[in-house]
Nucleic acid binder design. Structure first.
Lengths: 351, 351
DNA sequence: TATAGATATGTTACCGTTATCATATTGAGC
DNA sequence: GCTCAATATGATAACGGTAACATATCTATA
C-alpha cells in the first residue's frame, strides 16, 4: 500500500518547508505567488490529502459535529438531518450521523465514538432514557457542547429544541372530542411507559379536561414489551394495535396514533375487516409525513416543523461551540399544527 | 473551558509514565494489578477520554468507516445502515454516516470529509454519476478501500454489492404482461435519464422481449427536470405522474413505479378521480417497504434484500481493510423477489 | 545459586500538522 | 541611502498517543 503524501513530501519535492506548504493549503499567511503555484502543482501530482487527525490534534478542533438519531427510516429523522446539515455546511462544518436503532447501548457507543473522535459538538435526537442521560452527563463534564433535539434533557449548559408535542397531542385529542367522540383510543405506547411521550400526555390531559375517564383498555403499546422495535415497524404496531381494539366488545370510535405510520397501520386493520374510516373509526396521526396526504383516506395529523428544528439545533450548537465561555441553556419549543383531512371528517370522496 | 485529561495527566497523578497508562487503557502488555487499579481510579476521577485523533494519527488507522447514502428517508437506506452497522460494531469498528441528499456536490464533500478524517474504508450507496465516480477515483488513488452498494462503479479494486434490480424490473413487468396488460406505463424516471436505472432497463427489455413497443408517452419522470428531489418526495412524483397519465387520451392499464412510495402516490391519484386499483389501473412498486402490505390495496412490489446488502458490503469492506495487499474486485448481486398483492390482482376485499 | 523466561515499567522517537517566534528580503516614502 | 512596514520563508516545539526497544525485577527450575 502506497502511503498518502504528507506536507513534508510536498515540501521536499518543491524545495520549501512544510510550513510554507501548510500556508498554501490553508490560504493563510504570506506565500509568494510563484511558490504557491509550484506547491499547488505538486500537491495535485502527488494527490495530496490533508490529514484531519493531525490537523485536529494540533488545532484542538475538528470542525466536525455528531448527530445521534434513534432511527433513520422516517421522514422525521431525514428532515432533521437535512436541517442540521444545511446550517452546518454553510458554516464549514461536517456532520457525522450515528444511528442508535433505539438501543441505549448503541446510543452510548455512538456518544463514545463521537467524543473519542473529538467532534466539536453533538446534537442528540434519540429517545430519552435514564442511562442515556447519565452518559450524556459524562460528556458534558468533559465540556462537550450538546444540544438536545426533541428529547428531554435538563442541564444548565445544554440547549433544547423541540416541537410542542404536548400541545399537538392536546389538539389532536381535542379535535376528536369536538367531533363528538368520547371513546378515544391511543396506539403506540403503554400507559406505564407513556410518561416520557408528550403526545400521549396531551391525550391524557385533554381527556381529563373534558371529564372523559381515561380507559386503559383502549391504550395499546408495543407488542411483547420490546422497547427496541425500530421505528419503521410502527405500521405493524398500528395494525396489530388496531386489530386488538377492533376485537374489544366496545371498540373506540376514534383513535389517536403516536405517529403517521402507526396511523396507517391502524387504517389498514380497519379496512381489512370491512369497516370505514372515518365513519366507523376516526384516525389521527402525528408528524404529517409527505405520504399522509396521499393515503386513502388522506390522514388527519399533526404537523411538526422538523426541518426547522434541525436548523435551530445546529444554530444553537454552533453558537455554543464558538462561544468563549459556557452559555446559559437556550430553549426553543416550536408550535405544531393540526392538519384536518379525511380520516376524521368524511370528505367528498373518501374510499 | 477546562481541558480534558490526557495520558500524561493521569500518569503524573499516579506517578508512572504515560506508556503505563496507555497499557492500562488498551489492555495490552504487562501492568501490575495494583498499578492498574490506581490508574483506573485516577482515570475515573479525572474523567479521562482517549484522544482518537492522536491515537489514529500514531496507529495509522482509526477503526472507523464511512457510509455515504443519498437520502435517508426511506426504509431502504435505514435497512442498509442497520446491516452495515451490525457487522461493523461486532468487529469493533465505528460507522459514520454522511448524507448527500442526492446532490453530487454534497456527495463530494462527504467523500472529502471522510477521507480527511482518515476513515479506514468507505461504503458508497449514493446514486452513480459521472462526477461522483471521478471523485471516487481520487480516493482509490489514495488506496482507500471502497465498496459500492447498489450503484455502478467499475473498478478493479472496488467491491460491489447490489440487488438484481434489472431482473426485478423484468419480473415486475413480466407479471403485468402475464395479467394481460399491454399498455404499461413507468413512473419515476425519464427515458433519457433512465440509462442508469436498472429497474427501468428491465422494464424496457421485457417489453421488447414480448414485442410490445416502448411508448415514451407513458414513461414519466420527475417534474421540471430537477434531479435533486429528495427521495422521500417520491409520493409526489407518483401522484403527479399518475395524474398526467390519467389525463392522456389512452391512459395505461398498468403502471410500474420506480419504488413503493412512488407507487403509493400513483394509487392516490387513481383513487382521487374515482378509479379503482387494480381494476382500472394495476400498480407495481419496488422495495417492499414495511408499509406496502398495509396500504389499500396492499401493494404488489419487488422485494430486495436490503439488510443483507448492508451486511455483505460491510464484510467486503472489512476484508479489504484487513487484507495485507490489494484484493481483486468482489461482486455480489442478490436476487429480488416479486411479491404479488392486490394492487395488480383483484383480491377478496380490495377497496 | 546461577540463569532463563516472565513480568513490569521506562525511554525515545515519531505520526502530520500548525502556532509562534525568528529571520530575510522587498519596496515605499522621505 | 535610510527606515519602517509589508512580504516571504524558516526553525522549533508542541498536540496526545503508541511502537519499538531497553531495562529492571521477580520467579521457577536445573
Amino acid at each position: 500500500m502506497r502511503k498518502t503524501a504528507t506536507l513534508a513530501d510536498i515540501a521536499a519535492s518543491v524545495g520549501v518547508t512544510p510550513m510554507t506548504v501548510s500556508r498554501v493549503v490553508n490560504e493563510s499567511g504570506y506565500v509568494h505567488a510563484d511558490t504557491r503555484q509550484k506547491v499547488l502543482r505538486v500537491m495535485q501530482e502527488m494527490n495530496y490529502r490533508r490529514n484531519g487527525l493531525a490537523r485536529g490534534l494540533k488545532r484542538q478542533r475538528t470542525e466536525t459535529i455528531g448527530l445521534v438519531v434513534g432511527d433513520v427510516a422516517n421522514p422525521f429523522a431525514a428532515e432533521v438531518i437535512r436541517g442540521v446539515r444545511e446550517v452546518l455546511t454553510a458554516r464549514g462544518y461536517t456532520m457525522f450521523v450515528c444511528v442508535s436503532d433505539q438501543s441505549v447501548k448503541e446510543e452510548a457507543e455512538a456518544f463514545e465514538s463521537l467524543a473519542d473522535h473529538r467532534v466539536d459538538g453533538m446534537i442528540v435526537a434519540t429517545r430519552a432514557s435514564r442511562k442515556g442521560n447519565a452518559h450524556l452527563m459524562t460528556l458534558l463534564d468533559a465540556n462537550l457542547p450538546v444540544v438536545a433535539l426533541g428529547r428531554d434533557f435538563n442541564h444548565p449548559h445544554t440547549d433544547f429544541v423541540s416541537a410542542d408535542h404536548f400541545k399537538g397531542g392536546c389538539d389532536a385529542t381535542e379535535h376528536l372530542i369536538e367531533l363528538g367522540h368520547r371513546r378515544i383510543g391511543f396506539i403506540g405506547i403503554k400507559q406505564s411507559y407513556g410518561a416520557g411521550l408528550k403526545r400521549f400526555q396531551g391525550y391524557l390531559e385533554t381527556l381529563r379536561k373534558h371529564g372523559i375517564k381515561v380507559n386503559e383498555d383502549i391504550i395499546v403499546g408495543r407488542r411483547k414489551g420490546t422497547d427496541q422495535a425500530p421505528g419503521y415497524s410502527t405500521e405493524e404496531i398500528g395494525y396489530e394495535g388496531m386489530k386488538y381494539l377492533l376485537g374489544l366488545r366496545k371498540p373506540p370510535s376514534a383513535v389517536f396514533a403516536r405517529n403517521d405510520f402507526t396511523a396507517l397501520g391502524a387504517i389498514s386493520a380497519i379496512k381489512q375487516i370491512g369497516r370505514r374510516v372515518p365513519q366507523d373509526v376516526a384516525i389521527v396521526g402525528f408528524d404529517d409525513v409527505p405520504l399522509a396526504s396521499h393515503t386513502s383516506p388522506p390522514l388527519t395529523t399533526v404537523f411538526q416543523p422538523t426541518h426547522e428544528q434541525g436548523r435551530i439545533a445546529a444554530e444553537f450548537l454552533l453558537r455554543r461551540i464558538e462561544a468563549v465561555q459556557n452559555l446559559p441553556r437556550a430553549e426553543r419549543v416550536l408550535p405544531c399544527k393540526l392538519i384536518i383531512r379525511e380520516s376524521t371528517v368524511s370528505g367528498t370522496e373518501s374510499t
